[in-house]
């Protein structure tokens, strides 16, 4: 009986000048959305390309449904690369038809077109698509073969907030069908919203893995208070752990009551006080010490 859809054992990829992937182990059960996060250069694109069968590993083993990656995997995997050109002078429908013919089975194209909200642009030349339309088409291409496992490499990069939200809805629909998704993203809110499990990579290794909630609870037991910098001018902040961020001072504390008491004592206005829990952004910075770049 196959318990894991994808098993990655001690995966290593060495280039002449760099160890891009340095001993990764992941077991991926069916039906989850798994997020692979990491700063630029962490090795996540190399990792995902090896998992997709695009790149070869230096050593290690990848098993899909208990077997090494091969024909079956290529037939059952759907892939949306970070950047993919579409053929010029070909319409959206023709693109989907071409990819559909490359697989032994494919979904009903009309249903797929509706689902990915492509109906309005279906006879449009690929060159004339906007960023959001293009991403939806690339997702449709990834879904054309009714895949069991779907790789989404930074699928919402460059999209406006509305388009991102629409895209998230689409991914949630796919998840609801029990498909397994591997997602890479630089947007932590995206990972938090979509992923059942995440792994954070740095220097070719996984430095943390688990559900977003569990990882946050394991790493942090504090909260952050935010106040406008201008209102704290009179206060000696050396008692607190603070950080400046866009005109605000963030105070990190385990005891909110104590901090608020001090602020009241110092006659600091609390009208603009905000308290926020720790996020994946904080976790990421805590673990990698690097700001995410979009």
């Amino acid at each position: 009986m196959v318990t894991n859809l994808l098993q990655i054992k001690n995966l290593v990829k060495h280039y002449p000048s760099v160890k891009a992937v340095n001993g990764i182990n992941i077991n991926l059960p069916t039906g989850i959305c798994f997020g692979l996060l990491g700063p630029n250069g962490a090795g996540k694109t190399t990792t995902i390309e090896i998992l997709e069968g695009i790149n070869d590993a230096t050593s290690g083993e990848i098993l899909y449904k208990g077997k090494p990656l091969g024909d079956q995997f290529r037939k059952e995997a759907g892939i949306m690369f970070q950047t993919t050109a579409l053929q010029d002078y070909i319409t959206v429908r023709e693109t989907l038809e071409m990819f559909a013919k490359l697989y032994p089975k494919h979904v009903d194209l009309d249903v797929l077109i509706k689902r990915c909200d492509l109906t309005e642009y279906i006879e449009q030349d690929n060159r004339e698509l906007s960023g959001g339309q293009r991403q939806r088409l690339l997702l449709a291409v990834a879904l054309v073969n009714d895949p069991d496992i779907i790789f989404l490499d930074e699928p919402t990069t460059g999209l406006d907030p509305q388009a991102r939200r629409n895209f998230w809805n689409l991914i949630n629909d796919i998840k609801a069908e029990g498909k397994t998704i591997i997602l890479t993203t630089h947007y932590m809110d995206e990972a938090y919203t979509l992923c059942d499990e995440i792994a954070i990579m740095d220097h070719g290794k996984i430095i943390a893995q688990g559900t977003p909630k569990a990882l946050l609870e394991e790493t942090f037991n504090d909260v952050i208070l935010q106040l406008p910098e201008i209102e704290l001018n009179r206060l000696d902040l050396s008692f607190f752990t603070t950080q400046d961020r866009n005109g605000y001072v963030e105070i990190t504390t385990h005891d909110v009551n104590e901090v608020i008491a001090i602020l009241i004592e110092e006659n600091i206005s609390l009208s603009n006080l905000q308290i926020r829990p720790r996020t994946l952004d904080d976790l990421f910075l805590e673990l990698t010490g690097k700001e995410l770049r979009v």
């Binding site: 690369f81 050109a85 697989y103």
Partner: peptide, 16 residues
């Protein structure tokens, strides 16, 4: 051109 813009890479991921 197809190789440079990633079209070939996308096709490699299919059964062709």
């Amino acid at each position: 051109r197809y190789r440079k813009n990633g079209m070939l890479k996308r096709l490699k991921a299919t059964p062709i």
